[in-house]
Design a binder for these strands. Structure first.
Length: 666
DNA sequence: TACAAGTAAGTTTTT
DNA sequence: CTTACTTGTA
């Protein structure tokens, strides 16, 4: 009799065994990326090539190798992507995966900055400005400094905000940025420089940080305070960055700083899917990764597991029409399926009817609404379709485009809460005060300084606006009472929202006599959402960094388990996939969007169409209307998008719609 | 002087 | 639909 052999695990690296059969579950390229342990690595991953899968298995592999989950940092572009990833790692490893740090660049920056705020002289209770807030501040600074109000040609606040933000994302001075990207604003150079400086000063003074500040100040913190950098480097031994092609110069620098001590940085991305240059991203960044981390290993994932060959052919032919050649060629082993189709509709409404009808048929065929998406270039492209879907009782959720937290009524409510969290937030005070009947910007601006300085804002409001005999006394004292109530100890954020809504309801009715019920419904849903927050600060931060963006029938959506169709801008659909995808408004003048004229902008639109096509697994429909309405020129004849010009007719067959003679059919 | 109401023009994509 | 400027009113 021979003895049984019992293996002792975990003593030597060679004897290491893993619960997960990595070699059996991954292809050789994925396996190479997943088992890569130390040192920089760049994974160039084509659409549908298992990019997310690779990230998840790498995280699992690290943890199984003894790396503590807390020392893994996963940076993604959306919180949704981060959560999805953490969920899937937990699916693999169970509780062993708990504790992985992750989030967007901005939310990570927020967390670190609040902890180390004193090191770079910012207040820990800083307020985050979203784009609309930024524009409000710019306007305020502009009027205060007496800068150009008469000149009609002076750029609007949104253009100024775009300029300032772009300069910072590309790490340029205002002068350089105007020179390179905004030459038409050159005549206002001096004022714009002054305005940008005023804007910066104002934020510093008031404890305000905009999106760009979050990244910039974190970079500054890491740059100037070596102990902090070393601490973070030690805390996060393994850094993984998703969608690296959409990073800009600031984010690339941040990644470099975070990985400086250990070099354990994995960047994953696809240069052909770079669609955020308007935010300062440059798809060439991904090719510069080896320059950032010399000696970086490069792995390409080129096998597509998502789409059938017919869909991949469309995607490949679209991207092959690009002036710039990208780094990979996708292939798949998924043969068969239905051929993609280019559908020509008479007008926009026929386009909508076709999509709705086909979706109903798909449901008959057993395809759930959850497995279907309708994608489009711009948020407003789906308006007509939304009406048609409602008519057909097809439930849907819309992502992207319009944002609820940027609507006036939600911003109004939030402003009342923001002044509680940060009494120095003068822009929010301005908004709050101007809502008081009888108070305009003049009165508000005069009252602000006193209120900001005051230990008790309620008393300051009373003394500024509610003098005896003042016609605004009643309204002002209601505001003062509200402020006192909001500052009560132990009050929950949801209760605070409730108090503000009580105060705000009559103002809402007054300001929007035509559609206040709809806005009121929004606010009710908004209050439901706020139930889950424990602190006002965390709520306000999340509203700025990850605002609720989904809408149901034009109203803010709350979490629901109902199976629904997805409508989405292509930008918001990134990284996601569906069995069936419709792409509507595939017409020149809509896609590419008419605003882009530079060759580089057109190239990005082409990549955008590539992203759209590669979202589909089994069926793909491109739809466009012949009769298009344009406000500028009236009705015009629609042409298919120019990106389809070079396509082989066999790759994308066409179909036309006709009305049924039989009135009993659609 | 300051507020409110009314008019005319421009409207991509997101943290 | 929102922004920015113009006109009307207290």
């Amino acid at each position: 009799m021979t003895d049984r052999i019992i293996t002792l695990r975990g003593q030597s690296p060679t004897a290491k065994t893993y619960r997960i059969d990595y070699a059996g579950l991954l292809n050789p390229a994925q396996l190479a990326a997943v088992t890569h342990r130390d040192g920089p690595i760049l994974v160039v991953a084509g659409a549908g090539s298992g990019k997310t899968r690779t990230l998840i298995y790498r995280a699992a592999r690290l943890i199984e190798s003894g790396v503590a989950p807390e020392s893994i940092l996963l940076l993604t572009f959306t919180r949704r992507a981060a959560q999805e990833m953490l969920r899937r790692v937990e699916g693999l490893l169970g509780d062993g995966a708990r504790g992985i740090a992750g989030g967007t660049f901005h939310s990570f920056a927020n967390t670190v900055l609040r902890r180390y705020s004193n090191a770079i002289g910012i207040k820990p209770n800083f307020t985050i400005l979203d784009r609309a807030d930024m524009e409000d501040v710019i306007n305020l600074v502009r009027t205060r400094s007496g800068l150009v109000t008469r000149d009609r040609r002076f750029p609007k606040k949104s253009a100024i905000a775009g300029l300032i933000s772009m300069a910072r994302n590309k790490r340029r001075t205002i002068a350089d940025e105007i020179d390179i990207d905004y030459p038409h604003l050159a005549e206002h150079l001096a004022e714009l420089i002054q305005l940008a400086a005023g804007y910066d000063g104002y934020k510093k003074e008031r404890g305000l940080l905009d999106y760009d500040d979050l990244l910039d100040r974190l970079t500054e913190l890491l740059d100037r305070h070596e102990p902090v950098r070393l601490k973070l480097g030690a805390a996060y031994r393994y850094v993984m960055v998703d969608e690296y092609q959409d990073t800009n110069a600031v984010q690339a620098e941040l990644v470099r700083q975070l990985g400086r001590e250990h070099g354990n940085v994995m960047a994953v991305g696809d240069d052909a899917q770079s669609i955020y240059s308007f935010r300062g991203a440059n798809f060439r960044n991904i090719m510069d990764f080896p320059a950032l981390f010399p000696g970086a290993r490069i792995i390409k994932l080129e096998e597509n597991y998502r789409s059938v060959q017919g869909i991949l052919n469309v995607a490949n032919e679209v991207i092959n029409g690009a002036a710039e050649k990208y780094t990979k060629a996708l292939f798949t082993r998924r043969e068969g399926g239905v051929s993609p189709l280019l559908v020509r509709a008479g007008d926009e409404h026929m386009q909508s009817r076709f999509v709705a009808q086909r979706i109903l048929d798909l449901r008959e065929e057993g395809i759930e609404l959850e497995e279907i998406a309708v994608l489009f270039r711009s948020g407003f492209h789906s308006f007509d379709l939304e009406l048609e879907l409602q008519r057909c009782d097809i439930p849907f959720i819309k992502r992207g485009g319009f944002k609820f937290v940027e609507t006036a009524h939600i911003k109004d409510v939030l402003a009342h809460l923001r002044v509680v969290a940060n009494p120095a937030d003068a822009v929010s005070w301005l908004r709050v005060l101007m809502l008081v009947p009888g108070v305009g910007h003049r009165t508000a601006e005069r009252a602000i300084d006193g209120i900001v300085e005051a230990a008790d804002p309620a008393a300051a409001i009373t003394s500024a606006l509610a003098a005896p005999g003042d016609r605004r006394a009643g309204a002002a004292s209601r505001l003062a009472d509200l402020m006192t109530a909001l500052r009560a100890k132990g009050i929950t954020p949801a209760r605070q929202v409730g108090l503000v809504m009580e105060y705000y309801a009559p103002i809402l009715r007054d300001a929007y006599p035509d559609d206040y019920p709809r806005r009121q419904r929004d606010l009710d849903h908004f209050q439901t959402i706020t139930e889950r927050y424990r602190s006002l600060e965390s709520m306000l931060t999340e509203m700025a960094l990850e605002p609720p963006a989904d809408s149901l029938g034009g109203v803010l959506a709350t979490d629901s388990d109902e199976a629904v169709l997805t409508l989405s801008t292509i930008h918001s659909a990134k990284g996601l996939e569906w069995r069936v995808v419709f792409l509507i408004w595939v017409a020149d003048g809509r896609f590419p969007a008419p605003q882009g004229v530079e060759p580089e902008e057109i190239e990005e639109e082409r990549r955008l169409m590539y992203v759209a096509a590669t979202r589909a697994r089994d069926e793909l429909y491109f739809v466009y209307p012949i009769y298009m309405f344009d406000r500028a020129v009236g009705y015009t004849m629609g042409q298919p998008s120019r990106f389809l010009d070079s396509l082989n007719p066999e790759t994308l067959p066409t179909a036309a719609l006709e009305e049924s003679d039989d009135t009993s059919e659609g």
